[in-house]
Design a protein around this nucleic acid. Structure first.
Lengths: 149, 149
DNA sequence: TTTATATATTTGATATATCAAGTAAATTTA
DNA sequence: TAAATTTACTTGATATATCAAATATATAAA
């Protein structure tokens, strides 16, 4: 059994991690689409982060949701086009941008907050607090292992 | 504490899952690049799967590595261009393709197999068998939760 | 055996991932 | 203060993700 896991790339716990996050993203996107049709999971995350802290920079957003700066630039670009955000330059540091949530963005947050909570509840249904903490702890170890190489 | 986790999307265990798999993919790609410069993690997985079972269809490959059929089409396209694979139509079922690994592909597998094992070892370093099994079990629950909605 | 349906793959459109290189502003150093 | 370095963000190129629609072949039903 263990030998199998070693040989076949798709039978490693690392691929269960990949599998899990992909399934979670799928139902998340599906449930979000039921309520708001023109937004993605990632764009939704950007909204929520900005809603919690008006002054985060793009780099900070990138770090929070584990994305590349370039990706954030493009995600925000699309959100501005779709009237979720307004982008201006930060007067205090002109290298930075100042991101503001539009009314449409605010309404969207209200609509989607319960959906996101439901998604998490659904994904973690039946797991005990101990299991969730264990999961978190083990994943942190993996993250550290990968980073410190 | 728990309340925090509920509120901030980036403080949920689900984002630790995302974080972990992204870090793992990063070192994997880095280590692969040290040995073979023109191949990606995903392309490498396709090679290994084909090497283990000559007769898998594209759909089966897609399922094994949790990807869309369309993605597999394009991944294979690139691998054919780079002389890792030869694509023909399957004589028994002309809807399907017959994928063959080239000599370059075979050499690449030999070069990269130890790298992939090292990547896994690195990521899981310091984790006990119990922890790995626990992780697998919990992730399976999450996968099931997300699928059965 | 036609017709209908299912299956395997492809293609198009759009979003995101990643790296490298570029730009502009801010900060540090000489 | 001028030059060098760092920082924040953008842009280009290429790979992958995802859905929907299209194609071609195979299988089932009438």
């Amino acid at each position: 059994m263990l030998f199998m896991k070693e040989q076949n790339p798709t039978k490693t716990v690392l691929y269960s991690i990949e599998h899990a996050i992909k399934e979670y993203r799928k139902i998340s996107q599906k449930n979000i689409e039921k309520v708001v049709s023109d937004i993605t999971v990632d764009q939704c995350l950007v909204l929520i982060i900005l809603n919690e802290n008006k002054n985060v920079s793009q780099i900070e957003i990138a770090k929070l949701i584990f994305k590349d700066n370039a990706s954030i630039t493009r995600i925000i670009e699309l959100m501005v086009k779709k009237d979720y955000l307004i982008r201006e330059t930060n007067a205090l540091d002109k290298r930075k941008t100042k991101l503001e949530i539009t009314d449409k963005g605010k309404k969207t947050i209200e609509l989607l907050t319960p959906v996101i909570h439901l998604n998490r509840k659904t994904a973690l249904d039946g797991l005990s607090l101990e299991e969730i903490n264990m999961l978190d702890k083990i994943l942190d170890k993996i993250i550290t292992n990968c980073k410190t190489v």
